[in-house]
Design a protein around this nucleic acid. Structure first.
Lengths: 122, 122
DNA sequence: CAGCATCCGTTCTGATACTG
DNA sequence: CAGTATCAGAACGGATGCTG
């Protein structure tokens, strides 16, 4: 494996990790899994996102080809967001991660308790 | 799927994502895959990390039971870091992600070029 | 409705200097 | 050697107000 991958912005691992590491991206993908949503609906579904931050997340994902942004020429404006096949294919790796997380959560939490308990004892 | 998972700090997905999303954690796991390393060696291998940040990363990973920190009673001091089975098992999901990244990198980069080109055209 | 501009508080990062 | 302490700068997140 290439050790320096995290420093090369074009490294695939880095690119994907930056996107996955973002709190909202994963939520957005989850929210759009069942079909397209417009901005407000998406925001309501994700919950707790500031409009600005949602927009940023959406733009970044659009730029990376993970979703499409469709502006309907209407008044009032209407914008639909929908996962591309590429974006949808990301759900698989995410699921792998989620599975691992669910499987090992108890171990992680137990390790934390141990660690914190020892710290407190000192 | 639970929509609110990102807001529950104890949610497995959140816990793991926070750790994976961290630039250094993935690098550290990669660096320790072949066996234990002491602090300086680890730092050299990862490259470009400030000592403070490495320490923070290591502590967080230790707390989560991903690696062990062994202090040898010597002068000069010597501290070894080694992946636990739990930490080692994380390499699998990471590999899944990396595979996806490598497979789809060209698509992502192409999408970016398109996006940026259209932006520049305006 | 969608989202851009602006502002502000918080967090994160990294460099530097110092200690057991 | 392996940190800890301190601190300034950058990046981020989020709230608010305004526009097509």
């Amino acid at each position: 494996m290439n050790r320096g991958d995290a420093f090369d912005p074009s490294c695939p691992t880095r690119v994907v990790l930056d996107r996955i590491g973002d709190k909202w991206t994963v939520l957005v993908i989850g929210a759009l899994q069942d079909g397209p949503l417009r901005f407000t609906a998406l925001r309501a579904r994700v919950g707790g996102v500031a409009a600005k931050v949602l927009t940023q997340t959406l733009r970044a994902m659009e730029r990376d080809g993970l979703l499409t942004r469709t502006v309907h020429a209407q008044v009032p404006p209407r914008v639909d967001y929908e996962l591309t096949p590429l974006g949808a294919s990301l759900t698989a790796p995410i699921a792998t991660l989620t599975d691992w997380a669910e499987t090992h959560l108890s171990a992680i939490l137990a390790a934390r308790d141990d660690y914190d308990a020892e710290l407190g004892a000192r």
